Computed example of a mutant assay.
Amino acid sequence: MKRLVLLVLFVFPLAAAASPPEELRRALDLFEYGEYEEARRIAESLLARNVLATDEQLIDANRIVALAYLYSHHPERLERAQQYFLQLLSIEPDYRLDPFFTPPAALEFFEQVRQENEERLAPIREQRRLAKQARAAEEAARRRFLEERARERESRAPPTVRYLQKNHVALVFLPFGAGQFQNGDRTAGIALAGIQLAAGLTSLGSYLVVENLKNDNGRYDPPQIRTARTFDTIKWVSGGIFYAAWLYGILDAWRGFQPEVLLEAPAIAPEVSVSGDGASLGISLRF
């Protein structure tokens, strides 16, 4: 039991420990609320441990420590503030404190530190300028490389085959969505074909049932009359649905009909040919 308690006491602080960015965020919050000493203690500890990864984090930490020393009554406050301001300027020589949140005396002191060390900061500024140019050149080269690769892929891609499809007005009047398929409206064509196929088969099946119920004299036996009437009604209703869908298909296909269409992809299209002996309906496949 004692070992378990010791293990919990050891593990819990590790689990609860904040990461360096979280500690820096807490220091920034404390600094904004005027808790300068506590903010300085946290930021100074982060800098001493060298756990901050980005330039922005290092700049924030050095700014907090420098200003906190400047606002304090520490006997070496000016020397310490100058030390951390110089560390900040060594990261970003052109950094500017925010005049809306920084007292004029602190702004003046910071600019004085910059001016006194301008000669030492100039090489750093030049190196940063060259590094920025190098990064920009690298990014431009990377974009050119990707653009060239994209153009190469496009040049190797097979050319788009275009052809002129001539449509036939005769297909507009055919059932089962033939006009819709010709116009490229496959959804409507499939829907109309399905409706007409189901209605047509239902009507045909009902007709066969009605005919099969007749006796040798072509009449219905009394027990079969009700059944015959039911299937006869189904026959006419389903037949009406078939012809209504056919009529709708004609009107819809006529509205979207175009004599010629320029296509860019392989297509299967109905084809009608007319000769002296009659007409034929087929399917053409183009690649």
Rank of each mutant, 00 (worst) to 15 (best):
S90P: 02
A61R: 01
S72A: 12
R49E: 15
L88V: 06
N117F: 09
P21W: 03
Q133D: 13
A16R: 04
R40W: 02
D29E: 14
R142C: 01
R41G: 00
V11A: 08
F145W: 13
A18S: 10
R63K: 15
E139H: 11
L30P: 04
S72D: 10
Q127H: 10
L58V: 00
L24G: 01
D55G: 06
P21Y: 03
A16D: 03
A134N: 11
E138P: 05
A48M: 08
A39K: 02
Y95G: 04
D29N: 09
Q112N: 13
L88Y: 05
F101D: 09
P20L: 03
Y69A: 04
I59F: 06
K132S: 14
A15P: 03
A140S: 13
E138M: 09
R80I: 07
F109K: 07
A53N: 09
F31A: 00
A68C: 07
A106L: 10
A16M: 11
R129N: 12
E79M: 09
H74L: 08
A81V: 00
P103R: 14
L121C: 08
L7K: 01
E108W: 10
E111F: 08
V113R: 04
R40V: 00
R80V: 06
F145R: 15
L14V: 10
T102C: 07
D94Y: 00
L58E: 01
P93D: 06
P123H: 05
T54H: 04
F10E: 05
R114N: 05
V113T: 09
Q87R: 15
F10K: 00
P99I: 06
A16T: 07
L67V: 12
H74V: 09
R49W: 03
L47C: 06
Y69C: 06
A68I: 01
E126R: 13
L7W: 04
L130A: 13
K132I: 01
A66E: 02
P20G: 06
V11Q: 02
P20K: 06
A136P: 07
L86E: 08
P123M: 08
Y84E: 03
N50K: 15
F12I: 13
P93M: 08
F110Y: 15
A43P: 00
E76I: 01
V8F: 12
V11P: 02
Y84D: 03
E111V: 06
R114P: 01
L24E: 02
A15N: 01
L46I: 03
V51A: 02
E79N: 11
E23N: 10
R125M: 06
Q112A: 10
A18Q: 14
P123A: 08
E116W: 08
R149C: 09
A48L: 11
F10Q: 03
E44K: 13
A39I: 03
A81W: 03
R149D: 14
E44D: 11
L78Y: 14
L58C: 04
E139N: 12
L67N: 04
E35Y: 14
Q127D: 12
L78N: 12
V113W: 00
P123R: 08
P103M: 11
R128D: 02
P93R: 05
A131N: 13
R120F: 12
I91G: 01
